[in-house]
Nucleic acid binder design. Sequence first.
DNA 1: CGTTATTTGTGCGTATGTATT
DNA 2: AAATACATACGCACAAATAAC
Lengths: 245, 245
Amino acid sequence: MTAAERPSQPVYRTVANKLRSDIAAGTYKNGVRLPTESELASEFGASRQTIRRAFHDLVSEGIVHRVPGRGTFATEHNSRYLRQLGSIEDLMNLSTDTTMDIVSPLRRQVNIEAASRLRLDTDVVYGVTFRRVHDSVPFVHTRVFLPEAVARHVLDSPELMEGASSTSTLIGLLEPHLDAPIARADQSITVAPATAEVAEVVNCDTGHAMLRVDRLYSNDRDELCELALSYFLPEHYTYRITLRR
Amino acid sequence: MTAAERPSQPVYRTVANKLRSDIAAGTYKNGVRLPTESELASEFGASRQTIRRAFHDLVSEGIVHRVPGRGTFATEHNSRYLRQLGSIEDLMNLSTDTTMDIVSPLRRQVNIEAASRLRLDTDVVYGVTFRRVHDSVPFVHTRVFLPEAVARHVLDSPELMEGASSTSTLIGLLEPHLDAPIARADQSITVAPATAEVAEVVNCDTGHAMLRVDRLYSNDRDELCELALSYFLPEHYTYRITLRR
DNA sequence: CGTTATTTGTGCGTATGTATT
DNA sequence: AAATACATACGCACAAATAAC
């Protein structure tokens, strides 16, 4: 419905983006103070409240910290605590030495829960199920759900057809077709018993305790693009993360 | 204005805490809409802006999402205790609303495996065992091992004595005393059955499938400083991470 | 040592726009 | 078409922490 002709974005987002890229460019390294709220308000012709809104986002992203009376500073991950190393690229590179075998091809279906988690206003989603194999050992069962608007770009991909086997990742297949790039992935990791289907696909007992990883990908407009529900065999997979300063 | 109220906190935080705990209690499960901004403003005698500030925090924590014209909804995450342990603020904030109960105080012991993982040239390590409690529910059992050189800085800490209970984190206790700052933590996450001791401490059955998180901290000289082995109850805890580009 | 200016934090009020019902 | 509910944006006042004088 909405045409792509929407270059306009909130002022606070413009401000936040500018500051983010300046920070990334190293403009405020080594404890250099960022501009004050008043300065930015003048510079952008916005109110102090609007600038605060931008800073609030940057703070919750953990890239700046603020001290009353002193100012705002880019967070130096080198001084105190740790920062996470994992990135979305790491998730994409998962494919290099593993194979994706399609268990059930990409097709339209009704799934209220998946639709709700993707925050769709219909119950219709597109789903595909596959497993990943490493050294001929299947170690993970994944179900991916996509909104219709996203799925239509990959409906004809041979990698997602019945019985296909490739070294792709779904997000890697999708990325080139999306008008806005994937910007974040929210993951939650817990333990869940293998369902009968999962058990059959990864060759374990039903009810076996699995490492369950839910991933929700979104683009830089905060639109949800993909929901991936994975069951990893803990005997063959350990989730590793390095937090660095 | 109120001079007598020392532990006073901002209204928006009070509102956010109330909503967080209601959400955790399942009050807004299954798509039940949260109160509107106006309703909460009346209920708390605050302005709509203050309520919005609270909601903004909840949104950036990922526990609610908002839809213009429809309302605010709890993000479906099985109402587990959700904590984001990818960034450092999250690691520190862990202490704000959870309690650390010492199960076994910090003391010298011989543990070949721990010593080996810390790459010590002796078998002597210092170990402490504790659990963490949230809303009177124990949700994790942790054993921490330290090299002697590190442990001596906190041997006399009251927080690590027999029967102590505090809101500290061990890394928070250690940090000020170390001559070289913690530079990285390598984590691995998998599934493991509860041992008898773990089961008793977190009140579950022996053999219950737990989320096991091993963390190995090191400083910028690549010296290993702390080994933490945690068993999380998956019913009450989900490990959350956000990956960004 | 206070005093003052600066800077962020909290909280209120208003107005207007947009999406949903 | 109207009412509801959230989004953006402006304004103001005062508090609290910091730094410089």
